[in-house]
């Protein structure tokens, strides 16, 4: 393998890793606050992708506008899911919300099958994403640069919200102690809704870029990326945003490099993520950056 190829693989793993990271952030933020694994997150990712192609093909919207609308729409959908399926269970045992999440996941998947049909659909990429960029010996799809760049921008925006705004302060407070935050006048339900909105917007962004990168849409497309992003979140330490980003990038790197260096193992690429999950759960259940999580009383 020469260095040009290596750089190409590196950029590919950065692309894939960013996509995982964007989804993983949503898992980790919701878990950080509600101790809930939002299984419907994969479907939010899938719907974000569908909405764009709906906008482009059905309403002939220009790409950037369709993307923006899809992200906004998906964020609203995430908020709706919280309002309908999780908020009524806030005081119920945690397992109830988890089961509700599984229910929402199946529900959205089946709604997608009804509306969009189960057959996979090809995605036609806009022309400005088709022409390869040539840098010396490295040939790149524009997406290979576009995805990490946009992801980085979104993550910086997220860091700004979480660490520099009042809403972010509220998020950090309720992730530690919901009741006391409430007593101090933090509108807990609104902050949770915003958290779902942000997580869903990032998942939509990831879903859209995923569909451009692997140009196919189907209602079950959220499953595997969603699971892997969840593993990334666990690997990084669930509840930690930085952890989710690192976890996503590491997972992307492992996946691309294993296939690059051991082409014979390509068929097992999905298995590595799950082996990683089992290994973390056995040896470091709190993940890279996760703090030991005392159960809240």
């Amino acid at each position: 393998m020469n260095s040009a190829m290596f750089i190409q693989h590196l950029l590919n793993s950065l692309t894939l890793g960013s996509l995982y990271a964007l989804i993983a952030i949503g898992y980790t933020m919701v878990y950080g606050i509600l101790r809930l694994i939002n299984f419907a997150h994969s479907e939010i990712f899938m719907l974000g992708a569908y909405f764009v192609f709906w906008g482009v093909t059905l309403f002939s919207l220009p790409w950037p506008l369709a993307m923006l609308l899809s992200v906004v729409f998906t964020a609203g959908l995430g908020i709706l899911v919280d309002r309908v399926a999780y908020r009524p269970l806030r005081d119920a045992p945690r397992i109830s919300a988890l089961i509700s999440a599984i229910g929402v996941s199946f529900f959205l998947q089946n709604v997608a099958i009804v509306f969009f049909q189960a057959i996979p659909r090809a995605v036609y990429r806009p022309a400005w994403l088709e022409n390869p960029i040539i840098l010396g010996e490295v040939r790149l799809l524009p997406l290979t640069l576009f995805v990490p760049a946009l992801s980085l921008l979104l993550m910086l925006g997220l860091v700004y919200v979480v660490y520099r705004t009042k809403t972010g302060l509220g998020m950090r407070a309720i992730s530690k102690d919901i009741e006391t935050s409430y007593l101090m006048g933090v509108p807990v339900n609104r902050i949770i809704a915003i958290t779902f909105g942000i997580g869903s917007a990032l998942a939509a962004a990831s879903g859209i870029m995923w569909a451009l990168r692997y140009p196919q849409l189907q209602p079950i497309m959220g499953g595997i990326p969603g699971f892997k992003a969840f593993i990334a979140a666990v690997f990084g330490g669930i509840g930690s945003i930085q952890g989710a980003v690192i976890g996503g990038l590491v997972l992307g790197f492992i996946e691309i490099m294993t296939v690059a260096f051991f082409p014979d193992l390509a068929g097992y690429r999905d298995a590595f993520a799950f082996i990683l999950l089992i290994a973390i759960l056995l040896y470091k259940p709190t993940g890279l950056l996760g703090a030991r999580q005392e159960d809240k009383v």
Binding site: G170, R172, D177, T180, S181, L183, M184, G185
Partner: peptide
């Protein structure tokens, strides 16, 4: 609340800001 329940991961200043939410 009982037990003080300050936010251990937030700075003193941030704890006070939170009180003014």
């Amino acid at each position: 609340p009982e037990g003080r329940r300050i936010f251990p991961h937030l700075s003193v200043f941030e704890n006070l800001q939170l009180g003014a939410y």
